[in-house]
Every structure is written in structure tokens, then in C-alpha cells.
Design a protein around this nucleic acid. Structure first.
Lengths: 202, 202
DNA sequence: GGCCCATGGAGGTCAAGATCGGAATCCAGC
DNA sequence: GCTGGATTCCGATCTTGACCTCCATGGGCC
């Protein structure tokens, strides 16, 4: 957490990237409200005006990071679902995607699952997008495979996503001796047993 | 949301209750950071000093409400688990408890599941308590019934709680034509199919 | 050597939490 | 019925903290 040395000038693109990285670290550590623009500037080793030459305000900066993080998990979820045609493996792969996301070094998932700016509509929209988009992809699979009505399939899909989200976050806070793949496989087993029993469509 | 008339005096006890009620409404509607003490006072039809004669500060007021709401869902979960010895019905009853909680008129569940003060340790502790305590009760049931090691049973329990939390919140935002009992039963079915397949202990 | 512009420290502004002296209201007892 | 005291209540104010810009500066380029 030590601020970077206060030296050299950087080309605009590189400075922006560095600012984003620094901001992510501070936001993840302290949340939105508890972090000041001063903190981010200090962390990056620049002064505040520099920050404001790259981003119009604190909220826009936060939103840029949040959007990136949302895109990451949604894309990862999509890749997992498309990685195979076998539904049992699909469940395992998707669960693994969530565990990888939550276990990743940056902690960027905290912006999504533990945000403290949920009342801001723009933020809320991004966060909801994760659950809704992931669930929608899963809904299609469930509906095609079981023949359940869309509404029901959607609620089941949301349930699975919730299972993944909450259990992965809990595991990250307190692994309790379980490795990541072990935990992921355990919960994937629960999910698969739950979903596999529904009437097959053919 | 119209402020109450600004008239009469109330005995201390009654005023306190009214302030708690007003504060809950505003906090639920706007979240912690977006609500001012002015808003709460206006909503209750009193001036700010009165508020401070009953509560030492904004955070204490919030915590009082949060704690009450956490106690409610934990107690409700416990009652559901103790309501029967049949595990299938247990799952259904517990799921129903979550759906009732989230569907309740006051919206108090938002303080727990959608708080925007998660960085405050005291708040974090209360919120975590819900998942941890509920999961712990369920862990005992799972462990006794399946013989799984405690750590694994605990992660499964957390998964089930996550399923309930997230799906219930999603259903509240967009019921999509499903009644409460219908939705609850659907997700309970998913949970039960998932958990029932594990090796029976005898 | 001279120009240029990114940078930095210091400050303006404003919202919101927290507080003070005085006024209004209720109640008990004569 | 009336008075004295205590409790409740309010308008106005203070202060803090954080977001967001103004003037001096110093290294890079021709």
C-alpha cells in the first residue's frame, strides 16, 4: 500500500492505466465512500489535478472500474457455458468461473458483490446486469434441457447464480481448509444434483 | 412519504418508536449514505435536535434497525428448522421463511441484503451474522443427516442460504407472474433435490 | 537558451452531521 | 382555577470533511 515514488512523467495512456490500477486497489480496500480522491492520487504517486485530467469525477472513475469487473465475470460465465455441451460439466465449469473470479488477486469482485454505492442507479444497473445476464444464459440452457416455462427456468437460474456468488464469497473469506477446486466441485455437485432431476425434454 | 403533521408532543417511549419507524422507511428507500438526519426528522414530523435526544448519532440509529432486522430473519430461520423433523419439509419451510422475510411490507431486508455501509465493521458483523448463523444451523442438520465433514457441510449450507437470499431478492424485484409460495416451492425443490442425494447417515 | 505544458500545493465551496438558547406544553398540587 | 417546574421541542448555527479548481514551478524539446 506504499505510494509509488513521485517521479517521472508518463504518456497519457500509461498514466491512465496506472491511475485505474491504483484506484482499483484503494476502492477494493476501503469501499467507495471511505476513499478520497486524495488517497487515490497518493497511491498513484501523482497530485489530484492529474487525476481530474483523466476522469471527470470520482463516480465516473468508480463506474469505469465497476463496468470492467462486471464485463469480466459475465464473459467468464459465457465462456464456461460455451466450453462444453455436457450439462454436468457446464455446471462445474461455470461454478469454477465464479470461484476463480472471486479468488482472483485484485479483489475486483468486491466492487460488484460488496459495493457501497448500490443506491446510485448507474451502479445498481451494472451490478444487476451480472446476475441478470448470467442467469439469462443459464435460463436458456435449463429451458432447452428441461422444457420448464421460461419464468420458472429463470428463477432456478438465478438461484444457481446466487449459490455460486454467496458460497464463493464465503469461501474466500474463510476457506476452512478447502482448496478452490475442491470447494467449487463440492458446490457444483450440489447444483447439478438439484438441476439434473427435472424432467428431460426430448 | 409525506411528512407527518408537525403537531403534538409524545411521551419519550412512543416518540422513540415513531422515530425508529420513520428512520426505517427512509433508510430502506434511500440507503444509508443518501439519507440525511434532516430527512428522518422531517419524515417523523419533528426537528433534528429531537432525533439527537433519542439516538447519539446516525450510525447508532442505523445499527439499531439493522440489528432488529437481522434478529428477525435468524429467528425465523430457526423456527422453520425446528418446525418439523422431516428434512424435505425443513427445506421448504426455511425457504419459505426467506421469501416471507424478503416479501414483507417494511422492506427491512434491504438493510441486511442491500446495505451500503458494509465497510463499517459493526455493520459487516451484523450482516455476516445472518449468513453465518443460518448456515450454522443448517450445517448441523446436513452433518447429522449425511455424515459429511463439518467444513463441507458448512459450505453446502452457505450455498443453500445464498440460493434463498439471492433468488428471493430477485423474485421480489420481478415476480414475473409467480406467487410467493409458488416461487418458494420451486426453489425449495431445487435445493432439496440437490441436498437429498448425499449419502445417508445411519 | 527560451518556450511549453504537465505538475503540485493551497484554497473555495458546499453538503451534512451535530449542537445551543429559548419557547411552548403538560402535569401535580394547593 | 392557577402556578411552578420539568420535559419536550424548534430555529438557527457551527464545524468538519471531501470534492473539485487556481497560481507558481520545473523538467523536456527545438
Amino acid at each position: 500500500m506504499a505510494p509509488r515514488p513521485r517521479g517521472g512523467r508518463l504518456p497519457r495512456r500509461a498514466r491512465r492505466a496506472q491511475l485505474l490500477e491504483s484506484a482499483l486497489e484503494v476502492f477494493v480496500a476501503n469501499g467507495y465512500h471511505a476513499t478520497g480522491m486524495d488517497d487515490i492520487a497518493d497511491r498513484a504517486g501523482v497530485s489530484k489535478p492529474v487525476l481530474y485530467q483523466h476522469f471527470p469525477g470520482k463516480q465516473e472513475l468508480y463506474l469505469a472500474l465497476l463496468e470492467t469487473s462486471c464485463d469480466a465475470i459475465i464473459a467468464s460465465c459465457r465462456r464456461a457455458l460455451e466450453s462444453t455441451e455436457d450439462n454436468k460439466q457446464r455446471v462445474a465449469a461455470t461454478m469454477s468461473a465464479f470461484y476463480e473470479y472471486v479468488g482472483s488477486e485484485s479483489g475486483a469482485f468486491r466492487l460488484v458483490f460488496e459495493s457501497d454505492l448500490t443506491n446510485e442507479p448507474a451502479v445498481r444497473a451494472q451490478i444487476d446486469r451480472v446476475t441478470i445476464d448470467c442467469a439469462e444464459m443459464i435460463t436458456d440452457v435449463i429451458r432447452d434441457d428441461t422444457g420448464l416455462p421460461t419464468t420458472a427456468a429463470n428463477l432456478l437460474a438465478v438461484s444457481l447464480v446466487g449459490m455460486a456468488q454467496v458460497s464463493a464469497r464465503f469461501w474466500t473469506d474463510d476457506p476452512g481448509g478447502l482448496g478452490r477446486d475442491e470447494a467449487s466441485a463440492l458446490v457444483a455437485g450440489l447444483a447439478w444434483r438439484g438441476i439434473a432431476g427435472y424432467p428431460k425434454h426430448d
